[in-house]
Amino acid sequence: MPTAGGGMRAVITTLRVLETVAELQPVGVTAIARATAIPKSSVHRCLLTLREAEWLTTSSTDGTRWVLTGRALSVGMRASVELGLREAALPTMRELRDETHETIHLVGYGTDHDLVVIDRMDSDEPVRTWVRLGARVPLHASCSGRAVLARLTDPEVERLLDGELERFSETTPANLEAVLEDLARVRERGYATNDCAWRPGVGAVGAALVDPRGRPVGALAVSVPVQRYDEQRALRLGPLAADAARRISTALPPA
């Protein structure tokens, strides 16, 4: 019979496997074992346990890789508006992905003034962009972040961006003045653009999702490999993202 200490260790090991899948999904046994330093045999047992509990399942496109289920996502998001946001957004995200053939990211804007990727609809192109679910998104450097900031007042933006702004590339807005200048353009056209300002080799357009008061609760972004992204492509994709964001905002449940 296992001891209480052994049982606790098994629970902790299983939770580490779950957290690693959440960070790296879709991910295989070998990569999980490497990331956690847990033996592959133990990783496999944990995965089977989590599948039986309906927290994990294998990928629909690769049966050797593991992903979170809707149950796991819903538990993680239950304490916030993110679950309602995801449910409202999924049909429109799918339509936008099918229309653009690019990856669609859904980003939630929390009460801690943080942006987090809460869902992703992958492109059907062989070369595509990727960012893990749960990734933190910088407000000043991403199109999602600047779409959200554009829905706030300048004094609010100044408070949120107080201090030195991290520079990710040569195109990252380097200071508050540069961000505020860009936000004026975002407010005018209804969407933000990003030319490798956050992630190298990635262009994007994004639009804010708002509640009935007009306050931002997240953003929708179309993410494009730089090989398929230029100013003309951004001009075509931007209005599509803005229209999709408006439809999702209308479909959001009341707070």
Rank of each mutant, 00 (worst) to 15 (best):
H105A: 06
V107R: 03
G108P: 04
G110Q: 04
D114I: 10
V116P: 05
V117R: 07
V117A: 08
D124L: 13
D124G: 14
P126F: 03
V131R: 10
R132C: 12
V137M: 06
V137Q: 02
V137D: 01
P138A: 03
L139T: 09
H140V: 06
R146N: 01
R146K: 10
A150D: 08
P155I: 08
P155A: 09
E156H: 13
E156Y: 10
E156I: 12
E156R: 15
V157Q: 12
E158R: 15
G163N: 12
E164M: 07
E164S: 11
E166S: 11
P173C: 09
N175K: 13
A178F: 11
A178C: 13
V179F: 04
V179G: 05
V186S: 00
E188S: 13
E188N: 10
Y191L: 04
A192G: 04
T193W: 04
C196F: 10
W198D: 10
P200I: 15
V202W: 05
V202I: 15
V202P: 07
G203W: 06
G206L: 01
G206M: 01
A207C: 04
A208V: 01
D211A: 09
P216L: 05
G218T: 07
A219G: 13
A219T: 06
L220K: 03
V222N: 05
V222R: 03
S223C: 06
V224D: 05
P225C: 05
V226Y: 12
R228A: 06
Y229M: 11
Q232V: 11
R233I: 02
R236M: 14
R236F: 12
R236E: 15
L237N: 00
L237D: 01
L237S: 01
A241P: 02
A242Y: 03
D243E: 14
R247A: 11
I248T: 03
